[in-house]
Design a protein around this nucleic acid. Structure first.
Lengths: 209, 209
DNA sequence: GTCTATAATCAGATAGAC
DNA sequence: GTCTATCTGATTATAGAC
């Protein structure tokens, strides 16, 4: 989707800074000056690389979407459902941990009605989900797992895995922790995987730690 | 929490309009003029009732929080876990359906680091969750349900139920539906309840439709 | 390509009539 | 209490030197 080549280092720096700022303050709440400060550049340089605030925002979204659906991308009807779903869940939780800003920015955009992503949702995301739902449906037909609404299942996995990025502030406040560490990451992924797999009637395999 | 008495009708009108606008555009993205237009009043009237934009925002949050945790409020160790959790899940989905703007506004606030709700999270929400987690722990000790992390369980229920309000735009685009209707509401609540209860090793009771 | 200084716009808040 | 008109500050975007 993005033409990811031939980008100057400065451009990448701006995109990274912009992602953090947009995630922290939302589109309107973000100041071009704040992005410039975070990137360590004068404000005018941003306008040299990107036409305006909105184009920069779209470039950030574009970059996020490129890496968004890589997990569960190559799943097929031949795979084992328990293994494939477990892998999908763990990878999503890991993504939330590695780049919470990306998840937050995407969430804010959707919450506000996806004003910049209506096209993407219908032309890219819907067919993607449809294809994955088809695989799950095949598992069910083949007797590999019990009858379960594939769309609802995907939504529930998205919701519960992304929660730990998007609502990190709330989770940490309630658990009275300062940060989301690797232990909590592992516990969380295992918990979600256990509930979902058992909920679908699949047997849970313990992984070596 | 809120002093909910003696409010003029106009004040309530402003609060309702403000909730929608803040949910749609975020705090910074919301224009006082847009709130005024939605409420059908001149802008100055808002400044008559509320000191400034931030105070109005806080008043809206306050009103939301008042009704936020009513479900699962009165649960006790004597209750049946399956019934209590099922009821909690269904009520949360219903809440999301009845007032998606409230859920979206709260979500945006948390995503951006809860700048206006740090105090609430620690002084109100954390004890609330702690008490509910205690009840779940008692169920486990009494052998009424299998060993399950109560905090993770509550987070997962929040995540999956609120998803249908917060990510409604995405859900509808993917399902290719125009709106979230009562049928979808019922399906969703049943799906989440089934997965969670089975995931916790509780037997699912079919409800009459 | 990079930066400083400035123009143009937009939005929150208020003054003051009714 | 309610409204119109206006002020003031903040912020995006650009002009133009280096």
């Amino acid at each position: 989707m993005a033409n990811g080549y031939n980008r100057t280092a400065q451009k990448q720096q701006i995109l990274a800074a912009a992602k953090e700022e947009y995630a922290l303050h939302g589109y309107s709440g973000t100041r071009m000056q704040a992005i410039a400060d975070r990137a360590g550049l004068p404000k005018a340089n941003i306008h040299y690389h990107f036409k305006n605030k909105q184009r920069l925002y779209l470039a950030v979204l574009d970059q996020i979407i490129d890496t968004w659906n890589q997990p569960f991308e190559n799943v097929s009807a031949d795979d084992d459902p328990a293994e494939a779903l477990d892998n999908f869940i763990r990878t999503k939780v890991q993504q939330s941990y590695d780049d919470p800003a990306a998840s937050k920015l995407f969430a804010s955009e959707i919450i506000q009605g996806a004003p910049h992503l209506q096209g993407y949702l219908r032309s890219q995301m819907r067919p993607w989900v449809k294809a994955r739902a088809g695989v799950i449906q095949n598992w069910i037909k083949a007797g590999k797992m019990q009858d379960t609404d594939p769309y609802q299942l995907i939504f529930m996995i998205w919701a519960s895995t992304q929660h730990y990025a998007d609502f990190q502030t709330q989770v940490l406040a309630i658990l009275n922790k300062a940060e989301f560490d690797a232990d909590l990451l592992h516990e969380t992924a295992s918990f979600i995987s256990n509930i979902i797999l058992k909920g679908c009637g699949l047997s849970v395999k313990e992984k070596a730690p």
